[in-house]
């Protein structure tokens, strides 16, 4: 009943939730008051013990890092990845001017090139986490354009282009020490990750930490480490590119939990936490998954 522990955010209850998850997975509990960096190092240690043959960078490949048969099929597909046309579209869209003559590039540091690996970001002025998808729509609105629908389609195409220009750079999510609200957002994301939900009573950690590498029916469960390094992703099941939050919704639905809306605070905080855990791994989006 992890959901009973997630109230009373941070402090005792939060620590408890993490402790419970740690015990469940058979690794040593987090030290009290562990910060994000200890969390990340601890997580790496956990997976190192479970998958001793993997190098850290291997985790960007998800299930393909741990299932050789699936890996071989995937490598075949990656010879001519099906997202290439969408990537082209994304590039064109990104460089198309708004009606006012400005463009996306004007909204971003380095004109949007090679920065996808630094999102989500803490926005002190807004007092909230801003994902790259949200930043794109904030840019549109600031320039008098309607926001794009989230999850798939044009926004995914543009995100794919932006990810491509950052390919190989290390994921670098920052939790500014001078604003305690940023750490709170991270902690909320972490609590979400360990909270059981849905009729089937799973947390994200139930599958991607506790049972990473095992089979649920015919599906190998990928480790959480590296899961945020390759978005948007072309899923063969979707037949198109989709965003990370589209995947969150899918994983919520399969445990019969009500998915949250795209870019809800819950999902942005979750994305902040999840992506921080992938810090130091290379950005490899877009890519392909089953």
């Amino acid at each position: 009943m992890r959901q009973t522990n997630i109230k009373g955010s941070r402090g005792f209850a939060a620590t408890l939730a993490v402790l419970a998850a740690g015990v469940a997975a058979g690794f040593a509990p987090y030290p009290a008051h562990a910060g994000p960096e200890q969390d990340r190092i601890h997580l790496i240690g956990f997976y190192e013990a479970r998958f001793p043959k993997l190098k850290l960078d291997d985790y960007v490949n998800g299930v393909y890092a741990i299932n050789p048969q699936m890996r071989a099929e995937w490598e075949q597909i990656m010879v001519f990845p099906p997202y290439l046309p969408a990537l082209d579209t994304g590039k064109k869209l990104f460089h198309t001017k708004f009606k006012n003559g400005r463009s996306y590039a004007d909204c971003f540091p380095h004109r949007g090139i090679g920065i996808a690996n630094t999102y989500p970001r803490w926005d002190a002025k807004r007092g909230e986490v801003v994902t790259l998808a949200l930043a794109l729509n904030l840019c549109r609105e600031a320039n008098g354009e309607k926001p794009l629908p989230y999850g798939k389609g044009k926004i995914a195409d543009i995100l794919a282009y932006m990810a491509e220009t950052a390919k190989g750079k290390k994921i670098h999510v920052v939790i500014p020490a001078n604003d305690p609200r940023a750490l709170e957002a991270y902690e909320r994301g972490k609590e979400f990750y360990y909270a059981r939900r849905g009729q089937l009573n799973f947390s994200c950690a139930s599958c991607h930490i506790q049972n990473a590498g095992r089979l649920i029916r015919a599906n190998t469960l990928s480790p959480m480490l590296g899961q945020a390094t390759h978005w948007p992703t072309y899923r063969l099941k979707w037949g198109a590119l989709g965003t990370l939050q589209r995947r969150f919704r899918g994983c919520n639905k399969q445990v019969r939990a009500k998915p949250f809306p795209f870019q809800s605070r819950e999902y942005r905080d979750l994305e902040y936490f999840l992506t921080y855990m992938s810090n130091g791994l290379p950005e490899v989006g877009p890519t392909v998954r089953q």
Partner: peptide
């Protein structure tokens, strides 16, 4: 989903009336 409703309500109940594991 009805159960999600239960979960949410439980969270609220606990938040208001109870604390601690």
């Amino acid at each position: 989903m009805s159960h999600t409703g239960v979960t949410t309500r439980m969270k609220k109940t606990i938040g208001i009336t109870l604390s601690g594991a």
